[in-house]
Nucleic acid binder design. Structure first.
Lengths: 341, 341
DNA sequence: CAGATGAGTGGAAACGTTTTCAGCCTTCCA
DNA sequence: TGGAAGGCTGAAAACGTTTCCACTCATCTG
């Protein structure tokens, strides 16, 4: 069932059918009605490949998102989608799994759909300038990485919270609450991911307050998973170093941290406080609720989309937007009376 | 940068370039090496639209998944993806948002990519036979609905747990633990979703044990959200009907239920037990851990993919696979000594 | 050595659209 | 009444591939 069949059925040329379908003004209403009726009747759906192939330019923005179950980025995505629609563009979403290469996916999408711009959401994103050169449209990254190969600041755009400062705020909140022995459960300390940035924020906060950094209080889990975070805490406990608070990389990891502490007889927050970064809706439903630094997910999505569209429409220059994370007070942090040492 | 440019650069015809790129045997190794080098150097990426347009058949299976942040279906998806790859097919994923029409999306995908089959994951799925007629390839549903318009059993395939029986098992587990006043927090009781099926299972369990169904113990939240579930519990408490256990529609809702109970001074499980259905990894990290009926997500994905591929390859007939949910004991249910009334 | 074989290559059609251009027929205006 | 203008339509080119067919050589085979 192609446009030709419809044309034949209607006794007109394919051009006319095409125009009718695409809402062009230069078709008589009578003709349009007739054609649309036939289209409806035959359940004809135009072939998108052919369309994309011939259309020279488009109003499409591609979004490549990594991972299927990331609660945080799905919030970002929703906001970005809304913004893209609002500015009169079409959004084309591609989701990729662990194995795939997001840049290649983006490049394919670019050619396939004649994209105007690309938005990368989530995932590690450590590509070199060389690798990025397959992308010929403006793009914005909203990802888990702080390191972009040999890309200079002026080569790409990004939107994120200031991870280091957020972590610092979190840890300072603990310090201000009287904690001094503060453990950290992070994915990695030098893996060029946001984990590293947040770890640096942790260190910065401690240093600023004259608290020595003790590597025995740091658990590197290697990944962002809950099971790993749980094991990280067990490792910490096994070391028998005293600590009264834990800084967790993310809300999900914080849940696992709290669970591990509880399972090993430490009450949260009475015996040990926990703070995290993310501010997922979920964090309001844990017991205790999470004290966490809320990443403005919606704002991130919106800003990322806006930045991208500015570059697309106005030829705006690459920029890096850093948003503020906001402390979302919860029940997992307890103020302690510093017992003089 | 098209295949023509590559051909020109190599001094050969487009046919040869095409063959080289696609690994056809009828190109001399020398030629292939030369062409591939140029391709690499120019970062040429074939245009997928053109490819799809001309290729008459494909090995592609389309997956249309509704919603971006569904932890359960992302597990199902992962397993399905694996199976599809393993059987030598390509998976093409389309994610859609609340507004979109999954059948239309599927139909477009079908024509665009010359699909061999379609898998629908998540979402309400109440289309009529008339609406489904745009789909011309085998398809399998793994969705939130128990009602498929006027579709007969033989018209489509589906994979799910036996929701009614799972709910019944859950509630019977509560009954066997000594509970008799059992509340339910469901999305709807007659909305033709799995919520209804689970509600029916709840009723069945009560009836089987001679416990009258009390509508004052049932909170209809209207949706699967956490905030709604929380409010549902508040509504239950406001009614001042006594209950010692709550059956929650899903793990996420159970979290909210537990939170609401706790916030209102009821300890879980000491004062009130909670049971749910889902068995998300998350449920092992809540406090207390969730007693829940585990839906075998991986198995569902795998079975759905397998069923679909059987239909595609062997022309197998539509089937309906019902898997068993397994009780995953947790800490949210407490055995009570029935105090004689 | 003649013919068959087969590997490697090029030409061209085909995929299903959109869009440009040209043409026809009305209608309108002077 | 002649011409311009404008609404509507059709023909054909173009988009970038893949693949069928035909062709050229070199290499066998008997």
């Amino acid at each position: 069932m192609t446009i030709k069949d419809i044309a034949r059925k209607c006794g007109v040329s394919v051009s006319t059918v095409s125009r009718a379908i695409n809402g062009r003004p230069d078709v008589s209403d009578e003709m349009r009605g007739k054609i649309l009726a036939v289209v409806e009747e035959c359940r004809y759906i135009p072939n998108n490949s052919a369309r994309d192939l011939v259309r020279s330019s488009s109003d499409a923005i591609g979004v490549v998102v990594r991972g299927t179950s990331n609660l945080f980025f799905s919030q970002v995505l929703r906001a970005a989608a809304q913004k893209i629609e609002a500015r009169g563009f079409r959004m084309i979403l591609r989701q990729i799994e662990s194995g795939a290469d997001e840049v290649k996916t983006g490049a394919i999408l670019e050619r396939e759909k004649k994209l105007q711009g690309l938005l990368f959401l989530g995932g590690r994103f450590d590509y070199t300038r060389q690798e990025m050169s397959v992308i010929n449209v403006p793009y914005v990254c909203c990802t888990y990485t702080n390191w972009f190969g040999d890309l200079g600041e002026e080569d790409y755009s990004s939107v994120s919270i200031d991870d280091q400062s957020a972590a610092r705020q979190a840890v300072e909140h603990l310090i201000c609450s009287g904690h001094r022995r503060i453990a950290a459960v992070v994915a990695g300390c030098s893996d060029r991911s946001i984990s590293e940035l947040r770890y640096r924020g942790y260190c910065a906060a401690l240093e600023a307050h004259g608290i020595p950094i003790d590597s025995r209080l740091v658990a590197e889990t290697g990944s962002f998973g809950m099971a790993e975070a749980y094991r990280g805490v067990e490792e910490l406990l096994r070391r028998e170093e005293e600590f009264t608070a834990v800084f967790a990389l993310s809300d999900m990891m914080a849940m696992a941290v709290i669970k591990a502490l509880t399972d090993h007889g430490r009450r949260v927050p009475q015996d040990c406080s926990v703070i995290a970064i993310d501010g997922l809706p979920l964090s309001n439903y844990t017991i205790p609720t999470l004290t966490t630094l809320e990443q403005p997910a919606a704002q991130m999505g919106e800003k990322a989309a806006a930045l991208l569209l500015d570059m697309v429409e106005g030829g705006g220059m690459p920029r890096h937007i850093r948003l503020e994370a906001r402390l979302q007070p919860g029940g997992s942090v307890r103020r302690v009376i510093k017992n003089r040492e």
